[in-house]
């Protein structure tokens, strides 16, 4: 158990340090890389509380897909960040207020079961030893709350269709390959084998 506690502090410390580095590092690519490291340590924390399924999904979805797209975009940005930082002072009070409220709310959530003892009934954590957490997550998402889950996925689908509709434009003068045409071509339609008499041509 001592080892698990030790690992918790390592993961938590690296995670917080990375989060600080995300917002303080000068190079945006470094920011994204620190964000990825933070995701990793969060996954490590999930493993420590016995939620290995969530840990793996966090790595697959956030690190393997979302952060790759972030990195993709950030690497191709050509933004002068010194220029961007010039106006920071104007927003610092607003930002600090919002951050403070958010921090207060998080603190309230995290300490809710000490403030109100009746809240302890809803503290969520994997129940170790009864069912594996893959099965229990499946139970919650696909059986207990299946309609809410379907509703959420419909909203995402609409968002995706909307994004595609907004960005799709048909430009004139672009040649595109029609795969069906190419597949349906055969040598009979395209090739003629002729015996040419010498001196006469076709």
């Amino acid at each position: 158990m001592a080892f698990a506690g030790f690992m918790f502090y390592i993961f938590a410390a690296i995670c917080v340090a990375c989060a600080v580095m995300v917002i303080t590092s000068r190079n945006p690519v470094h920011s994204v890389l620190f964000l990825i490291l933070a995701f990793f340590n969060a996954a490590g924390l999930f493993v420590l509380i016995g939620a290995e399924f969530l840990a793996m999904i966090l790595v697959v979805v956030y690190v393997g897909a979302v952060a790759v797209l972030f990195l993709f975009v950030v690497m191709m940005l050509d933004v002068n960040f010194v220029e961007l930082r010039r106006g920071v002072k104007r927003y610092v009070y607003l930002g600090a207020t919002l951050g403070g409220i958010l921090f207060l709310e998080l603190a309230l959530v995290a300490t809710s079961w000490t403030l109100g003892p009746q809240m302890s009934s809803i503290t969520l954590g994997p129940v170790v030893g009864t069912v594996s957490n893959t099965r229990s997550i499946g139970q919650v998402i696909y059986t207990d709350y299946v309609y809410l889950f379907q509703g959420a996925s419909l909203i995402l689908l609409v968002a995706m269709v909307g994004a595609i509709v907004l960005t799709l434009r048909s430009r004139a003068g672009v040649k595109k390959q029609v795969i069906a045409d190419q597949v349906s071509r055969s040598s009979k339609d395209e090739l003629i084998v002729v015996k040419v008499d010498s001196g006469s041509g076709i």
């Binding site: 399924f53 793996m56 697959v60 393997g64 594996s132």
Partner: peptide
């Protein structure tokens, strides 16, 4: 338990 997911990750 989540070996396949680990590999995939």
């Amino acid at each position: 338990n989540v070996g396949v997911l680990y590999l995939f990750a």
